[in-house]
């Protein structure tokens, strides 16, 4: 479990809002090892979501470099980025982003349509993950028939279905009450214990207890770092 898996250096991401230049990221260096559970914390506008989007290949920096498993993500073209997101990254969002017309099962299968997994294999893998997040009896339910916590568990199963090397969560507990929030966090922790590298963006203070490493950001820069003694 040693050795740097994700290496970000000198990341800058600027954009203009009206006539104002916003330095969302202003020179960020970050190294993550395989199997880490890392929380990016900071107030709104501190750049933590921007950093996560760059790590997930959804956005490209104005300057700097990201290497994942020695592959330079920041020099990939659109198609290579799509493949990178498909194989290496799983996303969990604050608002779940489930497709409302699909059942839980179909939502979990959705990413595998694009990675070309055979239908039988898709069903098998989706059921397996839904069992693991405790929704074995809810597979044919549509998102509107599920509670917030259940929806986020479907989203979690979906994020993991292509066996990504990095799981990225953008405020995964943000839309949940504290009890279901804790449920999701402990589930994330379980996957991490099984070896899954996880990076979470949050300002949920409870996460500080769950994460093994917490990085604090402010104004587009990393300001401090704690490593939990677990």
């Amino acid at each position: 479990m040693s050795g740097v898996f994700i290496e970000a250096s000198g990341l800058k991401r600027h954009y203009t809002l009206g006539d104002q230049l916003v330095k969302a990221l202003d020179g960020v260096d970050l190294q993550v090892k395989r199997g880490e559970l890392l929380a990016l914390m900071g107030p709104s506008g501190s750049g933590k979501s921007t950093l996560m989007n760059l790590l997930g290949g959804l956005d490209t920096p104005d300057d700097g470099e990201i290497k994942v498993d020695d592959k330079v993500v920041t020099s990939m073209d659109q198609n290579e980025l799509a493949v990178y997101r498909q194989r290496e990254v799983g996303f969990v969002f604050q608002s779940f982003n489930l497709i409302p017309t699909m059942t839980a099962q179909q939502n979990v299968e959705f990413p595998m349509i694009f990675s070309g997994v055979a239908p039988a294999k898709r069903r098998e893998r989706a059921s397996e993950l839904l069992e693991r997040v405790g929704l074995g009896d809810r597979m044919t339910h549509k998102p509107t028939e599920l509670s917030g916590g259940q929806q986020q568990r479907v989203a979690l199963a979906r994020a993991l279905v292509n066996q990504p090397s990095i799981l990225l969560g953008d405020e995964p507990t943000g839309n949940l009450d504290s009890k279901t929030g804790v449920e999701i966090l402990s589930m994330l922790r379980e996957f991490n214990d099984a070896g899954q590298t996880i990076i979470l963006v949050t300002h949920d203070p409870r996460l500080e207890e769950f994460a093994k490493r917490v990085v604090h950001m402010l104004d587009g820069k990393i300001v401090s770092e704690d490593t939990a003694a677990i």
Partner: peptide, 16 residues
């Protein structure tokens, strides 16, 4: 729109 964003996030290519 969000669904299209999601498609891209889960690895759908532009061609898809």
């Amino acid at each position: 729109t969000r669904e299209i964003g999601l498609m891209k996030a889960v690895g759908a290519s532009n061609r898809d």
